[in-house]
Write a protein that binds this DNA or RNA. Structure first.
Lengths: 224, 224
DNA sequence: CATTTTAAGCTTTATTTAAAGTTGGTGGGA
DNA sequence: TCCCACCAACTTTAAATAAAGCTTAAAATG
């Protein structure tokens, strides 16, 4: 999961970035509204955390601009004020959620999970396929035979695969969604993580597998 | 934009309605196939989201019925299954798109936008002729008898043929469109791929064939 | 020190070439 | 006019070459 964090207070931005990365998100941090807009135009994000009061361009303007362009990325607004007017304006402009500073990191994390949740039916923080479960709060991969923990990158790769079962995801798309559109890393790194994940799935006796299809990418399929 | 949502799981229906309304669609929700048919007869919709498995009347029957009456409203089918048979039958019955549960709301929204876009040159993700379907995202070639995957070049050749049914395409034109203007490759390579494709079409029991006409090139024709 | 990234050698699969058939139209001789 | 040799257009297969993907270990990062 790739998040954009737009927050001009350096100390808070730094702290949030650390917390988010520890929770297995990839984070791009920007420090004003104009920068936020630039990143949103280029990159593909699963969620945006947007401070309202920022230099150059305020958060609500950023939000209005991207919504006007048809970008439906989930957005959480942050603000020091708790005034009703702001809240209403923010939600009217297309925000998905709203958080008043100061807040507990626990609450922020819960709201990010809620906002980026797949399928919308169930309030589970777990992805499931075959005899394999991926817990999105503990980053544990488990099967009836046991469980093991995944590293940040491993987790994000598998999360993307499990969120789109049977759909092929190209190496380039993994790069963009996990490493970011401006990453310098070699495509090779994706293959390395596919290899690691296969090893772990095999070790757990999974009845699903990561299939490769030339030029189409990778997809999760039931073992036949 | 006015949408009809036919989905019998109440929780999912509720969630989808909320999301769609937040994205500025007007939504009529119905909970079985018969109701869907009733609404479609009276109302004027810009798009329909149709679950396949529903009480009273399944989604594919609803789709067939309205298409038989000449109703061309765009339809996205939803299903829990990802089986080839279903997919082929759904598309054969006149669905515009197909989505397997669970899906990202982002994806549904994107497909609704694509489906309801007027005047654009129908950038559907698949090509169809006779009992054969070509999926442009997975390079899968399928018929009621099964499916097999195509290599990159095979796919491009068949894509060109299926986009221009009944039209003869010369060997030189294949070369230019697929291998590029300045390719060093022999013309022969086109003939080789025609041969490979015929073999695969035969294996799938296709009721279409690649016909050759001397000096005119190749075209897809129904089997007589 | 755990995680991430790079690099290298290896395996598998796709693409291209080459060569050995087929087919069908054309033109010249009986 | 009919028949047949001939040739160019196409077909198919097998083998050679190229590309894509896999795995491991070692180097870099923080």
């Amino acid at each position: 999961m790739r998040l954009l964090l737009a927050e001009d207070e350096r100390a808070l931005s730094k702290a949030l970035t650390t917390i988010l990365e520890r929770n297995h998100y990839s984070v791009d941090a920007v420090y004003d509204g104009q920068e936020a807009l630039d990143y949103l135009e280029c990159g593909q994000y699963d969620g945006v955390i947007l401070d309202i009061m920022m230099p150059k361009l305020d958060g609500i303007s950023v939000l209005k601009t991207i919504r006007a362009k048809g970008n439906l990325v989930p957005v959480i607004l942050l603000t020091a004020k708790s005034e009703v007017d702001d809240k209403v304006e923010g939600l009217d402009s297309g925000a998905n959620d709203y958080l008043t500073k100061p807040f507990q990191t626990k609450e922020l994390l819960a709201r990010i999970r809620a906002m980026t949740r797949v399928g919308t039916t169930q309030a589970t923080a777990r992805l499931q396929m075959g005899n394999i479960t991926l817990d999105q709060t503990t980053f544990e991969l488990s099967s009836p035979n046991g469980s093991m923990s995944l590293t940040n990158k491993e987790f994000q790769m598998l999360e993307l695969l499990m969120s789109n079962p049977h759909q092929y995801i190209t190496t380039e798309r993994f790069m963009e969604k996990i490493w970011g559109y401006d990453s310098q890393a070699e495509l090779n790194v994706v293959w390395v993580y596919i290899s690691y994940l296969r090893k772990k799935l095999t070790a757990l006796g999974a009845n699903i597998q990561i299939k490769a299809k030339r030029n189409a990418g990778y997809a999760l399929e039931e073992l036949t």
